[in-house]
Amino acid sequence: MFPIRDHNPSSVRPVVTWALIAINIAMYVLTWPGSETGSTIWAYLALYPVAITHDQLIYGLLTHMFLHAGLMHLAGNMLFLWIFGDNLEEQMGRVRFLGFYLLAGLVAAGAQIAAAPLSDIPMVGASGAIAGVLGGYLLMFPRARVDILVIFIIFFKVFTLPAWVMLGLWFALQMLGGFTVDGSGGGVAYWAHAGGFLAGGVLALPLFLRRGGPRFWARTHGRPPHPQSHYTRIPRVTRR
């Protein structure tokens, strides 16, 4: 189950969101799996919790946000950033959004390090920072409509859900994963996701209050403050 689009168009060009996606793709190409040079760079720039707790390789707190462990890892993260990032960038402005993104990523890394401070498993990926984007999006647009693609074995179907349902379920799954697996997360940084999500909600709070706080929700009913997109469904073609 993953989102494929939201009904929340942006009225400005999300330059920072596009740039972050481009940098992540460029770093994936630079650290292409199977390349000896790429693997060396990847290992050098990854985040190692045990190193951080011993005041070593501190730069990994930032550089790990632009590395990915595989093509699907990259594609999934960039899809989430593409769908949800433009709306927050529009609301915050480019510079503030970039600061928000990086700070959420740092908090997410801190949450994962706190969960497993002596782990030597490298941590990579933009998902902690993107989780912050999801938390901020939920605060600002809880009733924006999001199209979800659900795949079950060979069957698939698209559902449209309010953002609070989709993102609330996503956060619940991260918390469940954090409490049911060991500190390493079984290869998934659940606590980074949960920490980033909560950080995003807190960091977006000043924006929410500037927009009027609860009055913003009353004015927009939790929906985007401009007309939502409407997508035409593919018509069914019957055999004559």
Rank of each mutant, 00 (worst) to 15 (best):
H193W: 10
T180A: 01
F159T: 00
L198N: 01
I153H: 13
A192S: 15
F155D: 08
Y190R: 00
L169K: 06
T180H: 01
L205S: 04
W170S: 10
A172E: 03
G183D: 00
S184K: 11
G195R: 09
G178S: 12
F179R: 04
I153W: 11
W191L: 15
F152E: 12
A163S: 07
F159E: 05
F179K: 05
A172M: 12
L169W: 10
A194S: 14
L198W: 06
Q174I: 03
Y190V: 01
G187W: 07
L198R: 01
G200R: 04
W191V: 09
G200F: 02
A172L: 15
Y190S: 02
L173Y: 05
F197Y: 13
A199K: 06
V188A: 05
W191S: 08
G185F: 05
F152H: 13
L169R: 07
A204S: 15
G200T: 04
I151W: 05
K157Y: 14
F159M: 05
G196D: 03
G196E: 04
H193F: 15
S184H: 08
F152G: 01
V158W: 11
A204Y: 01
F156P: 00
F152Q: 12
G186K: 03
F155L: 14
G168M: 02
A204C: 08
A189H: 14
L161P: 02
L173W: 03
G183A: 15
G178W: 09
T180M: 03
T180L: 11
V165R: 08
G201V: 07
G168P: 01
G195V: 09
Q174F: 08
Y190H: 15
A163D: 00
V188Q: 04
K157C: 06
L173F: 07
W164E: 11
